[in-house]
């Protein structure tokens, strides 16, 4: 039916771009993870086998970053996927008048994450607005970003805030493809709102849900900007994440080999997680 040969041509732009701008840098980094690399001359000076990996696995800060990253991913991915889905459904249902509200939800995602992080540093500070609100409601003020216990959850909360509007737009696009007739038929059969959501909306949105969860997981594993601007990994390594750890190894310690090894580990982690999620979501679907 479909002319297969010309279909291959459709791949071409992506393939060229991939080969030049992704495959080469990726291969280069993979190689570096097995080498000593001196950016100040000489390039790869020595092949060291698994030495870089051994070194990072022996570093307690690496494991600290590892745990923090997993906590960040778990803490941000599911809430974001859930809240943004509900948000999208609510926005989609609301009429023309409320349509402009969408803009309001989307705006936080429009502002650059760097600016948002700076503002949250303010909001989370001792005399910041969060403490003002908390004390107004009778709670006690806290050092959000200075407490080793609260710093990471505070960053997670900000991340959710900054990304729900963003992921809602993917759901909105998906919601718009669900034929209205399906809803009408269900309503005629006397289905309630929840039933409609469960038996029509959810299954039809499945590919988009997979996309949102997978993409957000990938992004969450690479959390970086927030950490650099708000905490630089502190206090006492409590917000150290893998990519920030990698970045410090690369551009502070200037140890490209170790940084590349971290990158490979992060890649493997993301791939494993994504695979797991796709499997899980597949099962959820068959259960529905």
């Amino acid at each position: 039916m479909i002319p297969r040969r010309s279909l291959l041509l459709f791949f071409l732009p992506w393939l060229v771009s991939f080969a030049v701008f992704s495959a080469y840098p990726i291969g280069f980094s993979l190689g570096l993870s097995f080498a000593d690399y001196n950016p100040f001359g000489g390039g790869i000076t020595r092949w060291v086998g698994l030495e870089n990996y051994r070194a990072i696995f022996a570093d307690s800060l690496f494991w600290r970053s590892f745990t923090n990253t997993i906590v960040f991913v778990v803490g941000t991915v599911l809430p974001t996927a859930g809240i943004s889905l509900i948000l999208a459904v609510l926005i989609n249902r609301s009429g023309r008048l409320l349509g402009c509200l969408r803009g309001g939800y989307f705006i936080p995602s429009v502002v650059s994450l760097a600016a948002v992080s700076l503002i949250f540093k303010y909001i989370y500070s001792k005399q910041g607005f969060l403490n003002a609100i908390v004390t107004m409601m009778g709670g006690t003020a806290r050092d959000w970003l200075l407490s080793p216990k609260l710093a990471l959850p505070s960053i997670i909360a900000m991340d959710i805030w900054a990304s729900i509007g963003y992921y809602a737009i993917f759901y909105l696009a998906g919601l718009q493809t669900i034929p209205q007739e399906l809803y009408e038929a269900a309503r005629m059969d006397g289905a309630g709102r929840l039933a409609i959501f469960r038996f029509i909306t959810l299954p039809s949105l499945k590919p988009v849900i997979v996309f949102v969860v997978v993409v957000n997981t990938i992004r969450a594993f690479q959390v970086f900007v927030e950490v650099v601007i708000m905490t630089r990994g502190g206090p006492m390594g409590s917000t150290m994440t893998l990519i920030y750890y990698m970045y410090e190894k690369a551009f502070h310690r200037i140890n490209m080999g170790a940084a590349s090894a971290v990158a490979v580990v992060v890649f493997a982690l993301i791939a494993g997680f994504a695979l797991l999620q796709v499997r899980l979501l597949r099962q959820v679907r068959s259960a529905v």
Binding site: Y24, S29, I218, M256, F267, I270
Partner: peptide, 10 residues
């Protein structure tokens, strides 16, 4: 899935 920052140098 590849961390973008590591690709900067190449």
């Amino acid at each position: 899935m590849v961390p973008k920052h590591i690709m900067m140098i190449p």
